[in-house]
């Protein structure tokens, strides 16, 4: 199955490089003065990484490796330093690299659950995914398993209409009942893709976390291979708490991938890179706007280029 046909990362790049200008002109000066000091390079890169939410730990790890390679190879150019950093980063994101085929041939229906904290962008992303798979000529059904937040069902229904896909509405109180109903219908009517929306929840709320676990159990009880994907949806604006979120959500069910939203702003999403690296999870998609087509497959190369673009 093809990935998004026409990858345009211009929007991403636009966002990511919005605050870059000033920074790089500073580096430019350093370079033209020929003050080539590894300390200085490190400091510049450190600033970029820390201000992009990469966190102290990952930043230090990347810089340590880069300085070593830089010295070992006896390099002295700032561009070389950047290249090394980029490569280091790329290796942290190995799992997010192509090819990104769905394991679609293995299972019909292919069940995807979205989860994350409140307001991270689950429902919107779900609408976008429904649209995306639909345009891939797949038969898509969505399940409104957010039975908690006011008007969550209406919100999803609105997306389902826009994407022209089926919906199982969250009219029951129990979210796992909605998930069950959706998967059951998908099996009976041979849908290709099942997308399940869940209520936003803080990882600190045990009861709500158990509820997620129950959804997963109910789904796999019905279809042993399901859920095929459990995507944690993370706001690109997130800071260091996102790591704890990933850890906690991962404690309750098996995450298979990450989705970063709101990268059309000026936030860089570095916290999600940390998660991908720490928990060996691929970043699958990124959200770059509020419209139904504002979704892209995550491409580490593009992301890294945009991050360091001048």
């Amino acid at each position: 199955m093809a990935i998004l046909p026409n990858l345009s990362f211009s929007k991403l790049k636009e966002g990511l490089s919005k605050t870059r200008g000033a920074l790089f002109s500073k580096i430019g000066n350093v370079f033209s003065n020929k003050t080539i000091f590894i300390e200085d390079f490190s400091a510049q890169i450190e600033e970029i990484l820390l201000e992009s939410d990469f966190g102290v730990e990952l930043t230090e790890k990347l810089l340590f490796a880069a300085r070593k390679t830089f010295k070992d190879k006896n390099l002295n150019d700032f561009d070389d330093f950047i290249t090394i950093i980029k490569n280091e980063l790329l290796s942290e994101l190995k799992l997010s690299s192509y090819p990104k085929l769905l394991k679609k041939n293995i299972a019909v229906p292919y069940v995807i659950i979205l989860l994350g904290i409140n307001g991270s962008g689950k429902t919107t992303t779900l609408g976008k995914l429904a649209h995306y798979y639909k345009t891939q000529n797949m038969k898509v059904i969505v399940g409104a398993a957010d039975t908690f937040r006011a008007a969550a069902n209406d919100q999803l229904k609105n997306w389902a209409v826009q994407a022209n896909v089926e919906i199982v509405e969250g009219t029951m109180k129990d979210p796992s009942a909605v998930a069950f109903e959706t998967v059951k219908l998908a099996v009976e009517q041979k849908f290709d893709i099942v997308l399940i929306d869940t209520a936003g929840r803080l990882h600190t709320n045990k009861n709500l976390m158990n509820e997620l676990n129950k959804i997963q159990k109910v789904v796999s009880g019905l279809l042993t291979s399901a859920p095929h994907e459990v995507f944690l949806v993370i706001d690109g604006n997130s800071g260091q708490n996102a790591k704890i979120q990933a850890l906690e959500f991962g404690n309750y069910l098996n995450l298979t991938g990450l989705i970063v939203t709101k990268l059309d702003g000026t936030a860089k999403g570095g916290a999600v890179i940390q998660i991908a690296s720490n928990f060996k999870l691929p970043i699958k998609y990124i959200g770059i706007g509020e419209k139904i087509e504002d979704l892209e497959i995550f491409d580490p190369n593009n992301y890294i280029d945009a991050l360091f673009s001048k």
Binding site: L50, E51, S52, D53, I117, G119, D235, N237, S238, G239, Q240, N241, A242, G265, T266, A267, K268, G270, A271
Partner: peptide, 8 residues
């Protein structure tokens, strides 16, 4: 959002 990172 109290979880906001550097871009705040």
């Amino acid at each position: 959002d109290s979880m906001t990172g550097q871009d705040a």
